[in-house]
């Protein structure tokens, strides 16, 4: 029995306010913890007229330390990326549509960033550690852009990093012969040079929009 399956692969309820200027709210309804239940995740942005928030920035509890494996079995931690921006997203290689689309978009975001892309480390973290070895995921992401790092790990490591990022994932059988897919959240996280959360991108944002926002964050950091 794989330890990972003992974990209810659902994350605890939380609600946090993003306090980046205007108020945005990231809300995950409580999940009941049963392995097959679905935990819908709703992400809503407040209207521009929301009450101004005066709390200090960068207090959003998204992200945290991780220790994962990259191509060649190399250990990679969040600290390896200090001084650069991490662009974190989750997926898996047994994914014919959503993940290739996402990786294409990340590659185009890097193109749109031009020279500024050097300051950005895109990290594609597997939510399918059973199938995605460091080699598999490394080769896979390299097909899209060699600047993207593919990461996997033990089921526990993956559970912990997904939890830190409030990312949802769930194994779902496609048949009774062991073929399965992974449900997963399709958000992308921009983490600052100190590793703390800065921006959240929804799947429908274009590479150009994402690049523009990353540039804005870089500009803010230069000014501060």
């Amino acid at each position: 029995m794989n330890d990972w399956r003992l974990f209810p692969v659902m994350f605890l309820a939380f609600a946090c306010s993003l306090t980046l200027g205007a108020t945005s709210a990231l809300m995950l309804p409580w999940s009941n913890g049963t392995a097959q239940a679905s935990a819908p995740l709703a992400l809503t942005a407040a209207t521009p007229s929301a009450t101004p928030v005066t709390e200090p920035q960068r207090k959003v509890p998204i992200g945290g330390p991780f220790k994962l494996l990259a191509s060649g079995g190399r250990t990679v931690t969040d600290e390896d990326f200090r001084g650069r921006y991490m662009l974190v997203f989750f997926g898996f290689t047994f994914c014919p549509d959503i993940c290739p689309t996402k990786l294409d978009e990340i590659a185009r975001t890097l193109q749109a960033l031009g020279e500024d892309a050097k300051q950005v480390a895109p990290l594609f973290i597997s939510v399918d550690p059973e199938r995605d070895t460091p080699e598999t995921i490394g080769d896979y992401v390299a097909s899209f852009d060699t600047r993207i790092t593919g990461l996997t790990g033990t089921p526990d490591d993956i559970f912990n990093v997904a939890k830190a990022y409030k990312a949802y994932y769930q194994k779902v059988a496609l048949d009774d012969q062991g073929t399965y897919t992974m449900d997963h959240s399709a958000l992308t996280y921009l983490m600052g040079r100190d590793g703390t959360f800065r921006k959240l991108f929804r799947p429908d944002e274009t590479p150009e929009q994402v690049a523009e926002i990353i540039r804005q964050v870089m500009a803010e950091d230069k000014g501060s």
Binding site: S38, L43, I98, D183
Partner: peptide, 13 residues
Amino acid sequence: EHIHEGDVVKMRP
């Protein structure tokens, strides 16, 4: 088909 539930993507036969 893909089902989009909030920000979660699900693939289903």
